[in-house]
């Protein structure tokens, strides 16, 4: 028996909006520690890892480890029917081939039940070691979203370079080039507006902007985004989910052959 009750149902709505265009079908894994997902896009160039810890749910019952295969587009369609202030409860009986999403309005005067068929998805999970990164950039997520959007109107790849001056985002295309430098500025009065750079050594990597723009769909989840970079490793773009966990996007670099 699985019953997960999330008072802040809007978090789950935002998570699906963030991943439904990157990944079509995925397995949600439920265990005592929490509700998680790891999936790659169809080209295996990007990977998303989601964790919602059990403590973040008002009620978390998961009798035994369970993996539920879902079509994320269909799941997003059902979650769109939940109000932003609704409480969302996920329910699944052992051995059943459906999952139920229950939406309760804050005043409990409207209760909705949406039932969706589960799918069999044989997804291979990748082992992702916790790594030491050459550079970690923490910046306003709205700023990062704006940069990716602006640069993608000029070119289709972005070079992200971190030096002691700051982090530089560069692109080039038929009409010309663009360079955006964000300097460290932890003097701002609001912490969520600070740009903080930790660097052990300079790093410069090239990525496809199409995927970066897809990741920024997670912006509504957190006012801060962190970019973790190491030479010749995928970048990790992480949006923390308030007191619950995180959504991490990994993107393989484009490397000079």
């Amino acid at each position: 028996m699985l019953e997960l009750r999330l008072v802040q149902g809007s978090l789950l709505k935002k998570v699906l909006e963030a991943i439904k265009d990157l990944v079509n079908d995925a397995n949600f894994d439920c265990s005592a520690t929490g509700f998680s997902l790891q999936a790659m896009d169809s080209s295996h160039v990007a990977l998303v890892a989601l964790l919602l810890r059990s403590e973040g749910f008002e009620h978390y019952r998961c009798d035994r480890n369970l993996s539920m295969g879902m079509n994320l587009g269909n799941m997003a369609k059902m979650l769109k029917c939940a109000g932003n202030d609704d409480i969302i409860t996920l329910k699944a009986d052992d051995g059943s081939d459906t999952v139920t999403f229950m939406f309760e309005s804050p005043t409990q005067d409207k209760i909705s039940d949406f039932e969706m068929k589960l799918m069999d998805i044989d997804s291979e999970h990748l082992g992702i070691p916790e790594a030491e990164y050459h550079a970690i950039v923490r910046m306003p997520s709205s700023e990062f979203g704006r940069i990716c959007k602006d640069l993608s109107s000029i070119g289709d790849t972005v070079v992200i370079s971190v030096t002691k001056e700051g982090v530089k985002f560069s692109t080039r295309g038929d009409i010309g080039t663009a360079n955006i430098v964000c300097r460290q500025n932890n003097t701002v009065d609001k912490p969520e507006e600070a740009t903080i750079i930790e660097m052990t050594e300079p790093v410069s990597l090239t990525f496809a902007l199409r995927y970066m723009n897809s990741f920024t769909k997670a912006t509504p989840l957190s006012s801060i985004v962190t970019l973790s970079l190491s030479s010749d490793l995928p970048v990790v773009v992480e949006y923390k989910i308030a007191e619950m966990g995180y959504i991490r996007f990994y993107l393989a670099p484009k490397i000079e052959e």
């Binding site: 295996h44 160039v45 484009k254």
Partner: peptide, 14 residues
């Protein structure tokens, strides 16, 4: 020529 790498080239299947 820039070659787009894949995630499976960096992390092993569990």
């Amino acid at each position: 020529k820039l070659q787009q790498k894949k995630m499976t080239g960096f992390f092993d299947k569990r």
